[in-house]
Computed example of a mutant assay.
Amino acid sequence: MLPELFISAFVTLFVVIDPPGCAPIYAGLTKDATTAQARIMALRATAIAAAILLVFAFFGETLLGALHIELDSFRIAGGLMLFWIAFEMVFEKRTQRREERADKVNADPEVEDVSVFPMAMPMLAGPGAIAAIMLLMNEANTTAETIEVFAALIAVLAITAAALVAAGPLIRLLGDRVEAVITRLLGVLLAALAAQYVIDGLRGSFAIAQTANGTLT
């Protein structure tokens, strides 16, 4: 059986990064590119997103410490952010915003390479994904669990790269209705995971407050 943390990390990152949702947008952004160009941009976008997420995975907590932000506070904020993403996914607001962003990029004739913007940032390594990887890294208490989180990230990014490379044929195969159903189901799952992050953050905050009160008394 797969480790519990790996499964949790995989589901969280898969839902937040949302390869099925990014594929149709990428297909629209690269409709004028050749197959080879689209493939190169897909792999480049995934690699850049991976680098961004790894930086926040390793140094995100240090950055929070420098800003004097408690990790439980970030956990609550991250959970609320993920819940908002879930809300948009269920009611198809996220797809609409991505399509509008893609239209703006397409409207600019000077923009040719979409691997950095908008694909790597903010579509793949957006605020939700950054918050998720930082929260998951905090859940990893051992070296083995850290490896599980990174393995889940690599797996999700590999699926994302494959989805982007096969974006055109995939969209023709699934159709808009199937994509909408999948997106809504993933949104409901993400909402539950986001609620758990908020609960954990509140529990941690109350525990710290109770410890502080006990120490003072």
Rank of each mutant, 00 (worst) to 15 (best):
Asn213Ser: 04
Thr12Phe: 00
Val16Glu: 02
Leu193Met: 07
Leu164Glu: 04
Val149Pro: 09
Ile85Asp: 01
Ala195Cys: 06
Arg184Ala: 13
Thr215Lys: 15
Glu92Ser: 07
Leu13Asp: 00
Ala86Asp: 08
Glu88His: 01
Leu170His: 05
Ala131His: 04
Ile25Lys: 04
Phe150Arg: 05
Ala167Thr: 08
Phe206Gln: 07
Phe14Val: 06
Met137Ala: 04
Ala45Met: 15
Ala57Thr: 07
Leu189Arg: 08
Leu170Ile: 00
Asn106Glu: 01
Ala195Pro: 11
Glu92Ala: 05
Lys31Phe: 05
Ala57Glu: 01
Met137Leu: 06
Leu54His: 07
Val105Glu: 10
Gly126Ile: 06
Thr183Cys: 01
Val111Trp: 05
Ile76Pro: 03
Ala194Gln: 12
Leu164Thr: 00
Val149Asp: 02
Phe150Glu: 01
Ile52Glu: 00
Thr34Ile: 09
Gln210Tyr: 08
Phe87Val: 15
Leu185Gln: 11
Pro127Leu: 05
Phe74Asp: 05
Leu135Met: 15
Gly168Ile: 14
Leu136Cys: 01
Pro19Asp: 08
Phe56Trp: 14
Ala195Val: 15
Ser73Gly: 13
Val90Ile: 15
Pro20Arg: 10
Ala102Val: 12
Glu70Ser: 13
Ala155Glu: 02
Ala212Tyr: 13
Ala155Ile: 13
Leu193Ala: 15
Met123Val: 01
Gln210Asn: 15
Thr62Tyr: 14
Cys22Ile: 15
Asp108Gly: 03
Ala49Arg: 11
Gly204Leu: 11
Phe56Ala: 03
Ile52Met: 10
Cys22Trp: 04
Gln96Val: 06
Asp113Phe: 01
Met123Arg: 05
Ala132Phe: 09
Pro122Cys: 00
Ala155Asn: 00
Ala140Arg: 00
Arg97Phe: 10
Ile52Ala: 08
Thr30Glu: 02
Ala158Asp: 02
Cys22Val: 14
Arg44Gln: 01
Ala57Asn: 07
Met119Gly: 10
Ala158Val: 15
Leu185Cys: 10
Pro118Gly: 06
Ala152Gln: 04
Asp72Ile: 02
Val55Met: 03
Glu88Gln: 14
Pro118Phe: 10
Ala207Lys: 02
Leu157Tyr: 04
Ala161Asn: 08
Phe74Tyr: 11
Phe91Asp: 15
Arg97Tyr: 14
Gly65Pro: 07
Asp176His: 12
Ile7Leu: 14
